[in-house]
Design a protein around this nucleic acid. Structure first.
Lengths: 233, 233
DNA sequence: CGATCAATTGACACGGCTCAAGGGGTGTGG
DNA sequence: CCACACCCCTTGAGCCGTGTCAATTGATCG
């Protein structure tokens, strides 16, 4: 709030957020400025809620730093993880086009910085910046691909090929070390099985010489070929 | 190919296709004309293939009349239905933004009319017609919502609530008669169970007085409340 | 260094898949 | 219009896999 440059200074934080995010990456400096002007930053502490079920949303949330966990809460208290958002990922795009209440909770798993854009501001931006529509469409198409893959995986009745298929996706079909994007109990829910089953199936893959577990959140694929044999299609 | 009006006449068919499709619905007559000019119609007989696995696709397919079944072919020969496309639905949007080969088969279940748009033509259109981007984004967001719902459903370990949840979605949470979008064996695969299990669970719902089966492809929800009790969340 | 929660491991029961056989509806050809 | 055949759907019996419940180990954080 210093003299003269007060206004420009006030959007520095917004600009930083915008420049970090892939969907805005290809925009020119001018265009980014337009985006930054309608952006509002949000901060969430670890364990804090970004939004809850039942809230009406007309806002696009973009993760800048940190991590956000999106999950359903079943009536029996079990949490079903839908998705984990890392920096650059966004959520709320559905609510932007269809009036709807949130059907899930969004919780920060660490100290997190987000930026938000209201529906009206975004629609105005889209009309003004064609490259932005392309970027958004691309991002949405990617999301769709992932969601459909997950649906295909989950339709597999047996737990072992289901897990193997997931690991193969995660590793990009090649050997190497991969980070699990969430805790194992969350991963179990994500894959439609219990933590116990996940543990057993992982062990089974280790025994078969296909993977190695490194620490708590890493898995090393040692035999991508065998993994492909266990996984479907 | 008659004299004079030859050119205009040649895109009549394309224009008909474009005007039928929801994502183009809100465009003005002029704008529809622009779209029709880059559209190419395709015809498929019942049982015919629209595209196969392994083909590179840079084309958006929009179903005008008929029905198209999208499915994976597992190595054991089992077919996993991903989606059934009715008039107005489209496929190929993923391939428009990420170079990729098709991972599924598309087969016409009846005599079907489609229209296609190439990637380059569509990107050009988007730049020219902002309303089109909004329509596309909205349609993609809807698709995403459906895919995420399906993933949530499939993560349910027990078959009965999984089926109940599906029926509830299909009926729009109210009582009434709904058409099944595919055969029961396809539906079983879609829901991640065997045809036998599906048959038994349907019977179970009938016995409980929750639904009635009408013919082979219709289900009547008689007690939406009880259905909600069986279904999750 | 202790407390707390995640992850593992074991025993057991139940649900769903597998394999096999019997109707019922649908679409075809005569 | 009828009859046949094919395929989809249904129904039954047995077994394997996975969820459930419970206890132990292990790791991470204050």
């Amino acid at each position: 709030m210093e003299h003269g440059q007060a206004h420009e200074h006030s959007i520095e934080r917004e600009l930083e957020c915008v420049s970090q995010v892939p969907i805005f990456q290809r925009l020119s400096a001018d265009q980014m400025m337009s985006v930054a002007q309608v952006t509002r930053p949000i901060h969430a502490e670890k364990g804090g809620t970004v939004f809850s079920t039942g809230e009406v949303s007309q806002t696009l949330y973009i993760v800048n730093q940190g991590q956000v966990r999106l999950y359903h809460l079943a009536e029996d208290g079990r949490e079903q993880v839908l998705r984990v958002l890392n920096p650059g990922d966004f959520i709320g795009e559905i609510a932007l086009f269809t009036d709807e209440i949130h059907s899930s909770y969004a919780e920060a798993t660490k100290t997190t910085e987000l930026c938000t854009i209201s529906r009206s501001a975004l629609t105005a931006l889209i009309k003004k910046l064609p490259p932005l529509s392309m970027a958004l469409l691309g991002a949405l198409a990617d999301r769709l691909k992932v969601a459909e893959r997950q649906a295909t995986l989950l339709a597999i009745p047996d737990a072992l090929p289901r897990l193997a298929g997931y690991l193969r996706e995660l590793s990009g079909h090649t050997a190497g070390t991969v980070d699990l994007p969430m805790s194992k109990q969350d991963l179990a829910a994500y894959l439609g099985m219990t933590p116990e089953s996940l543990s057993r199936k992982l062990r089974q893959l280790v025994t078969a010489g296909i993977i190695e577990t490194i620490g708590r959140r890493q898995v090393k694929i040692t035999d991508a070929t065998k993994l492909g044999d266990v996984a479907p299609a």
